[in-house]
């Protein structure tokens, strides 16, 4: 999978949803962003007034899942210890670390999971644990890989509520990867249609009404649907109308 000409500009406190069909390179994009895949070009962190920050961007990443088998004895506390400390976890967790993990888990209502084994958590519980971990230390950009793909309806609502709260609380820039157009449109400030390159980039309304959506997914989004989605999220009302019109 090769992606080319990816140019994304994100602001603090803004939620950008990357949508695209299966095999479009959504996960590849995230893996390149975290540095797990080689890429040319760079991630730049620019302060107000065009002052560039030379230190590497702090990235919080929430993967879809962990590579665990059902017999893995790794606990939530072990995960926090291994990610945030050099102290070998088999010597036992230090008090300070337990306090840090406890505080972090409180942010996503997952405190009660501290001593549980990762392989025994439900999808939603694991999602909240991974989100809590991504916030230690508080990142400048938060990457979410298909966060709700395996959640039920109430889990999805709950997850997006948490994410909206985090965005305002921490002034985070969030990049969300999803193949669920409607759900993504509801929470996003901006939408990016990806299929090996960036096809289209703008307000969720503009992107959903773009003819490229029909070309890419094989179905269109009716104006009425978009109005309904927009009505649920007032921030989209100021978005300009798409140049392409209704597909």
């Amino acid at each position: 999978m090769v992606l080319e000409r990816i140019n994304l500009h994100m602001h603090c406190g803004e939620l950008t949803a990357v949508i695209g069909p299966n095999g479009a390179g959504k996960t590849t994009l995230l893996r390149a962003l975290v540095g797990d895949l080689p890429h040319t070009g760079a991630l730049r962190f620019v302060h107000r007034g065009d002052v560039e920050d030379s230190r590497p961007l702090r990235i919080g990443y929430v993967p879809q899942k962990l590579d665990l088998d059902a017999s893995a004895p790794t606990t939530v506390l072990d995960l926090f210890a291994t990610a945030t400390s050099r102290w070998p976890i088999w010597l036992g967790a230090r008090r300070r670390l337990r306090v840090t993990a406890d505080k972090a888990l409180a942010v996503t209502d997952a405190q009660y999971l501290l001593r549980r084994k990762l392989c025994e958590l439900s999808v939603g519980q694991l999602q909240r644990v991974l989100l809590a971990l991504a916030l230690v230390p508080v990142p400048e950009i938060l990457l979410l890989d298909e966060p709700v793909a395996a959640l039920d309806q109430s889990g999805i609502e709950r997850f997006y509520q948490t994410v909206s709260r985090l965005r305002t609380d921490f002034d985070l820039s969030i990049l969300l990867v999803s193949h669920d157009l409607a759900a993504a449109a509801r929470v996003a400030d901006r939408m990016v249609l990806l299929n090996r390159t960036i096809l289209c980039d703008g307000s969720p309304r503009a992107v959903l009404l773009d003819p490229l959506i029909r070309q890419t997914f094989g179905f269109g989004v009716a104006e009425g649907d978009v109005e309904a989605e927009a009505a649920r999220n007032l921030t989209h009302e100021t978005c300009p109308l798409p140049a392409g019109g209704t597909p």
């Binding site: 797990d36 590579d67 210890a81």
Partner: peptide, 15 residues
């Protein structure tokens, strides 16, 4: 910790 973390999720460790 590093080897253990990479085994849990490579991209997460890289991030």
């Amino acid at each position: 910790n590093a080897v253990f973390f990479v085994s849990l999720n490579r991209s997460l460790a890289a991030s």
